[in-house]
Design a protein around this nucleic acid. Structure first.
Lengths: 143, 143
DNA sequence: ATGAGTCAGTTTGGTTTTCCAACTGATTAG
DNA sequence: CTAATCAGTTGGAAAACCAAACTGACTCAT
């Protein structure tokens, strides 16, 4: 009997479980951009209000965002990212970059000129000693 | 009259338009991992077969994946990422990292020791002159 | 104090997706 | 001939989604 293979256990799937629903990541984008009021989030994302309510509740439940009461009569809340939520920034940025280069026409990542006059190419150095850091100069010291 | 504000035009939203549907990103994950047959993708993601068919068609249409015929009688196809699709790797990785640290228990990003003996903190230098590069030393030279 | 407007939702009722299990049809393996 | 593999289809029910209207507690300008 084939053991009816279960789907791969994977943190990508786990992450999508949390922020993979429609609108969730756009809500996070808005919060990153500083929008914190229900109506503004609704307008800027385009999400239906009832769905937005559901997403905000779920994201709060899962610790991605927090509600702050900014008025008590009537009770009014604003929404803020927690650390867990702020840590989604790289995800949103990666998505933005992909969208820029592959969906919008806007190709071309930014090009900079260093004060030395050359086109800037980044090189990673050790902040402590200033020397160039690369494969052999680095040793992983935690599991 | 309020001008009925339209949702924010944004490459994050544009990207999600393409790979934001349920299962799409898990399909990409599987293709990144090298799974290329319909049945395997179905099993590893857990996606219903009809939905998977729809996603594969759409991702092909949008140029994220390609079908390759690997048998002609009966016609059988395998799926491969295009460049556009491979460029989603950072997105999947960012998601994986977030999932690892915030959804699964597995915290702790890797910590390295530089050959100088200090815990490694990266500093970005100009590859041409070797000097430290930061805000004021960089000038953007393209739109 | 009346009426208009703001804000954060909730309700309604209809449309669209998703889901699952079973089925098809072509082909190869035993 | 029979069973198994593979890549889908099909049908029907359950869940999610949607737009627009509505609530209720307020504020502000007349």
């Amino acid at each position: 009997m084939t053991p009816a293979t279960a789907p791969r256990e994977c943190s990508v799937a786990a992450a999508l479980e949390v922020i993979g629903e429609k609108w969730s990541l756009l809500v996070v984008r808005e919060l990153i951009l500083g929008t914190d009021k229900f109506n503004d989030i609704a307008a800027n994302t385009g999400a239906p209000r009832d769905i937005l309510t559901a997403r905000l509740r779920r994201l709060e439940e899962l610790g991605v965002i927090e509600r702050e009461e900014y008025s008590s009569r009537p009770p009014r809340y604003s929404y803020v990212l927690t650390k867990k939520g702020r840590d989604l920034r790289p995800v949103v940025m990666a998505l933005k970059h992909w969208g820029d280069t592959h969906v919008m026409g806007r190709t071309m990542p930014p090009v900079y000129e260093h004060s030395c006059g050359e086109i800037f190419t980044p090189a990673t150095h050790c902040a402590a000693c200033g020397e160039k850091a690369g494969g052999a100069t680095l040793t992983r010291i935690n599991p």
